[in-house]
Simulated scan of single mutants.
Amino acid sequence: MSPLPWERVRERVLRPTDPLSNSLPWGERAGLLVHQKLLSQARISVKCFQAARLFFGCLKTRFCGVRIAHQIAKLLKKWGGRPHNLHENKNMKQIQSPQNETLKSLAKLLDSAKERRKHRLAVLEGTHLLETFLQQNQQPEQVFVPESRWHESETQNLLGRLPEHKITLLATSALSKINSLTHGETLTTVFRLPENPSPAHVGDCVVLERVQDAGNLGTILRSAAAAGVGRVILSRDCVDVWSPKVLRAAMGAHFLLQIHEDVDLLAWRKTYRGRVLITALNAQSQSLYHLNLKENETGNAWIFGNEGAGVSPELLAQADVCVQIPMLGATESLNVAMAASVCLFEQMRQRIA
């Protein structure tokens, strides 16, 4: 097929009925035609559509709109774009019924810590957590996409980085099975849990004993990652660290940390060679702001306890330093997540000063 004369291309792009015909330069209008052509054929991701439009917005030479659309689709597909057509992809799984067995299994993973432990699987909700997960070079087991979110640019950009057999489309009729367990119609990602190695005997870490609130645990994980503490150790009776609520509160911090679950803290303390600091109100407590928290060879372990009862007497007796956070006014104590954040960021402040 030979290129069409430039005047015929102009006629196709500069249609009198096109509201853009008097507001855009010729190259940009031509780019818009290519953009629309690719979009209508669902050839590549939205990010590639935008790249094509920007490219042709600068082009001043003659070309055939239809032919170049196919050529640029091939090039951009080679560069990383990949088709995700809602109706034409034969490898993509679709679920229409809320009674589907896969959907039932997903609902159990969302609702039950026992199921998550049994199958070593957990569930992420939303595009942000999936984006963070993929940024760490991880691959999900399966991503469930509500039909209503399919054509969103953010969704398509993420799905373009996944093989089609890992994507399942959820019809609106099927969403009732999990809607009560998730935050609205959002992407739901099933991923395999990492290994649970024994904690190291040295190095900075956060140690949590019997923390029960999912929001508190998620916030502590997020603060630890932000403050440069790479390991978190959890006692056997902490809330499930891989529950959807903790994952939402942590905002992707799970994938930046090494997490050790179900640890016997008294046994761990016998082998840990670093300094152990515990927040407590007693006669031996030292002000947080009088401590030297700069880096040392063996590291600091910060221990925080249950929201109501604090650290157990048995573990408190193992502290090298009891720490008090100075406060003005009549407030007696801080929420455990806030206390952990204050301590970790004071440590970071001293190290970067």
Rank of each mutant, 00 (worst) to 15 (best):
L106F: 12
Q142G: 11
V34R: 09
G65L: 15
E209M: 04
A250Y: 05
F49P: 08
L158E: 10
I178W: 00
L315W: 00
L130N: 10
T102V: 13
E141D: 07
H201K: 15
L208W: 02
R10H: 11
K93N: 12
L265Q: 14
C322R: 12
P25G: 00
T182G: 00
K177G: 01
I220G: 04
V13S: 12
E154F: 06
V211R: 00
R269W: 02
R53N: 05
S40C: 03
D204R: 13
S173G: 03
R82W: 11
L86S: 03
S176T: 10
T61Q: 01
W6H: 13
S112E: 06
N216T: 12
L315H: 08
T172Q: 02
D204N: 15
R8P: 00
S341L: 07
C322T: 15
L170F: 03
E346S: 03
W268V: 07
S105Q: 14
T298N: 15
E332W: 10
T172E: 08
N22R: 14
N282W: 02
V143D: 09
A337S: 11
P16A: 02
R210M: 08
A250H: 03
V66D: 15
L257Q: 06
Q286P: 03
V66T: 02
A317L: 12
Y289W: 12
I278Y: 13
Q99F: 11
K78C: 03
L247Y: 00
P313Q: 04
I167L: 12
F345C: 01
L86W: 07
A107C: 06
A226R: 12
T17N: 15
S148Q: 04
H183G: 02
Q138S: 14
R62N: 04
R8N: 14
E101N: 07
S285V: 03
G305C: 02
D320P: 10
G31C: 07
L54Q: 14
A340W: 11
V207T: 09
Y272W: 04
G305R: 06
V241E: 05
P326Q: 10
L281R: 04
W242P: 01
H290R: 14
M251V: 15
K90I: 12
P3A: 04
L266F: 00
K77R: 00
D240S: 04
I352P: 02
R210A: 12
A200T: 06
A226D: 14
P16Y: 02
F55W: 00
W302S: 00
T127P: 08
R15L: 10
L208V: 07
F55E: 01
K37S: 06
G27F: 07
V190C: 01
S223H: 05
R192K: 15
F49Y: 09
A51T: 13
G80I: 06
L39W: 05
R53F: 01
R117N: 14
R248M: 09
S223P: 12
R351F: 07
R53Y: 09
T17G: 15
Q284K: 14
I72Y: 11
L175Y: 02
S333L: 13
E261T: 12
S223M: 04
L103G: 09
L38P: 01
W6K: 12
Q212Y: 08
A227F: 06
Q142N: 01
N335V: 08
G80L: 05
V246M: 11
Q139P: 03
F345L: 11
D204Y: 02
H260T: 03
K166D: 05
H151D: 14
R210T: 13
N137C: 07
